[in-house]
Write a protein that binds this DNA or RNA. Structure first.
Length: 712
DNA sequence: GTAGGGTTAG
């Protein structure tokens, strides 16, 4: 298989956006083979697709289904790379359509024409009448009564006009049935299509399917508009098998999909995650002479984004550049989102700049995607610059964008900016803060240790009737616990439970961490009372850990029991807190046992990392007490290894991380103090914050001096 | 007013 196919995009078009002129370093081999296949005739006979207007009486039996068509295609595109390879290595640009050698089509290049409407002088009256129908009660009785008021029996055109203006779907349906019963004119395809579109708003797939069957039994033609409506309704109702089934039925009747139906079905396969099928269909369409439009590329872009497939995203950009299709705003939005999902913030940024340079104005969705990407990447400077630009350029804002900005501020610890945004929201007309905006603010105040403002927010929520969710509750409790405002904490917990918050494992982990912060027994008892309501087994475990008479095996069983029924993301926090609680009570032996159990049950993967040159202790996901315990364990182990004169690496290091939040910065500091207390040979690295280092020599001489002092 | 396809949070 080819592993390094290089080719350069034609750079003679100097106006082409920067992003497109960069050389594509490597096209994914498998995908490329699919691309290259499409110009060549497959060895098998081509799929037998009759033309839609072919008068072949047996055509129903001769039209292969989609899956039948895809089968020979995928088997030939994917299984014969050896013969294909040299051709596309030498001629990468000739892979597309060869007009001299037309292929049998899989889609019609002519989009179905819509019928033209003639001017209707009664438009105003009919609109008013339709409005009356829309305003009346939805019951059948009321609707039929309102229908009595129709000025005269409707003509075909008048009936269509009304049908087009009715909502919700129930009324469209009743009107359709009424017109049909009047028997004034034959019900043509367009009546069904308009009715189906309205049904689709109501996700009434079953009714749509019944209408389609009715058309078939009454001999009314189903056209591309009918099929695309059925397919997209199935898709939106997540009935993907139904969507595929109707697409296949269309082929079997000999009707060719046009580009609208075709991209609808591409999206169906994309939503199913069937990437190879989508690409096969795409290539077959291309080979039929189809020039995909931005909508088709948006479908491909979204699919690759969902798969986190960066090569795929590049492929979409490359295709658009090759074909000469300029991305529109939706395509840019989709690709930006996709870049985020593929973990490419830098490329998302360049793509955004390219979009703006091309003269497009970003909308709310563009900016939401970008803010999310910068927040996730912790690119505070870019995020703030973007926000400034949003304000000065007066780019559109909506409620989702505001909340995304607030979450970004929470991720980056930008308290002042969040306050400003929150005030903006309060003063806006359409973007009032909701429960999630408040949660983001509680998160920001909570992680910043700002208990007063967090409590103010809590009171404000109670006053305004904004729902407090479990995450907001967790943030508040964490914050009040750290501020040692145990009374407030208990009050918040009780109010939250009264208002329907169901404590989850994260909230329990948070309460447990508050236990570890208590100095007085009465405070501890208050917190235990809350925890008892949420997770009695956890309280029992804490009590057992404090009972010196209980042996290790019993502890192990209880621990396994509790951790086993805890959500995975909360297991390590639970263990960290339990270790902290034991250390606070000077029960170091239990702390070491717990660290051992945590390691045994896989809660601390990657705690120890060994290479030939360096051994590293990574305590970044440990609490202070757990990190101290881990350091003591490690020093004990290293001591023995040195004494036994086993092989050692040149370098030893311990990672605590520098921390981005106020409260996560304590670990490096406290770890440093503990290093000093143990007189361990580590020193803070000058190049890297949150990293402690020691050489082999440092370690050996430390062991020797320890041994001497023990001997003395 | 005008039958069909694509993009946004937790």
């Amino acid at each position: 298989m080819a592993t390094s196919i290089h080719f350069t995009v034609n750079s003679s078009e100097t106006k082409r956006p920067v992003f497109f002129t960069s050389p594509i370093k490597q096209i994914p081999t498998k995908r490329f083979i699919i691309s290259c296949r499409s110009t060549k005739s497959p060895p098998e006979s081509p799929p037998d697709l009759s033309e839609p207007n072919n008068n072949n009486k047996n055509k129903k039996n001769k039209n292969p289904s989609l899956s039948e068509q895809l089968k020979p295609l995928t088997s030939t595109t994917l299984s014969n790379p050896a013969t294909d390879q040299p051709q596309f290595l030498s001629k990468p640009k000739s892979i597309w359509v060869n007009p001299a050698k037309p292929k049998r089509s899989v889609l019609s290049l002519q989009r179905q024409k819509r019928s033209l409407y003639s001017y209707n002088p009664q438009v105003r009256d009919l609109r008013l009448f339709a409005q009356k129908l829309n305003d009346c009660d939805s019951s059948q009785g009321a609707f039929l009564a309102a229908l009595e008021g129709i000025p005269q029996p409707p003509t075909r055109e008048n009936a269509l006009l009304i049908l087009n203006s009715l909502k919700p779907w129930q009324k469209t349906h009743m009107f359709f049935n009424w017109v049909k019963a009047q028997n004034l004119f034959p019900m043509e395809t367009i009546f069904y299509n308009v009715t189906m579109k309205s049904m689709r708003f109501g996700r009434q797939f079953q009714l749509i399917e019944e209408l389609a069957e009715e058309m078939i039994s009454n001999g009314i033609e189903l056209d591309n508009i009918t099929y695309s409506t059925i397919i997209t309704c199935a898709k939106r109702s997540k009935l993907f098998d139904k969507a595929v089934e109707w697409f296949e039925r269309m082929y079997k009747t000999g009707l060719m999909p046009d580009e609208v139906t075709y991209s609808a079905i591409l999206d169906v396969y994309a939503k199913l995650g069937k990437v190879e099928e989508v690409l096969s269909l795409y290539e077959r369409g291309r080979a039929s002479g189809w020039t995909p439009d931005p909508i088709a590329f948006s479908v491909l872009g979204k699919m690759f984004g969902e798969a986190g497939d960066y090569d795929g995203i590049r492929y979409v950009l490359q295709e658009m550049a090759t074909i000469g299709v300029k991305p529109n705003l939706v395509v840019y939005n989709t690709l930006l989102e996709a870049m985020g999902k593929a973990g490419k913030p830098g490329l998302a940024r360049s793509l955004f700049e390219e979009m703006v340079a091309s003269g497009l104005t970003p909308n709310e969705k563009t900016l939401t995607a970008l803010v999310k990407i910068y927040g996730k990447a912790r690119w505070a400077r870019d995020a703030l610059e973007l926000w400034e630009r949003m304000r000065s350029s007066q780019w559109p804002m909506d409620f989702i964008l505001y909340n995304t900005l607030l979450n970004m501020c929470a991720d980056l610890g930008l308290e002042d900016e969040a306050k400003r945004l929150f005030e903006d929201m309060k003063q806006s007309e359409h973007c009032r803060p909701d429960s999630y905006s408040y949660t983001a603010m509680l998160n920001i105040f909570g992680s910043g240790g700002n208990a007063d403002e967090a409590m103010q927010l809590f009171e404000e929520m109670s006053k305004l009737g904004v729902h407090l969710n479990v995450m907001g509750c967790t943030c508040l409790i964490q914050c009040l616990g750290r501020a040692k405002r145990f009374g407030d904490m208990v009050r918040v917990f009780n109010v939250a439970v009264e208002r329907g918050v169901k404590p989850d494992d994260r909230l329990c982990g948070c309460l447990l961490s508050v236990v570890s912060l208590c100095e007085k027994t009465e405070d501890e008892d208050m917190v235990f009372l809350c925890l008892q309501q949420a997770n009695p087994k956890l309280v029992a475990l804490v009590k057992v850990l404090q009972d010196e008479k209980v042996g290790f095996e019993a502890i192990k069983d209880e621990f396994r029991d509790v951790i086993g029924s805890t959500a995975v993301e909360s297991r390590r926090p639970f263990c960290n807190c339990l270790i902290d609680i034991c250390r606070n009570k000077n029960n170091h032996e239990r702390a070491h046992e717990l660290l051992y159990l945590g390691t045994l049950y896989g809660l601390y993967p990657g705690l120890h990392n060994k290479t030939a040159n360096e051994w590293c202790l990574d305590v970044r996901s440990l609490s202070i007490g757990a990190a101290h315990t881990a350091l003591e364990e490690w020093m004990g182990t290293l001591y023995k290894i040195v004494q036994r004169e086993e092989a050692l690496p040149k370098l030893f290091s311990a990672q605590t991380g520098a921390g981005t939040h106020k409260f996560s910065q304590g670990l490096a500091h406290s770890f440093g103090s503990h290093v000093k207390k143990l007189a361990a040979p580590f020193r803070q690295s000058e190049e890297k914050a949150g990293c402690f280092v020691a050489t082999r020599e440092d370690l050996v001489s430390w062991v020797q001096s320890q041994a001497q002092s023990v001997a003395a």
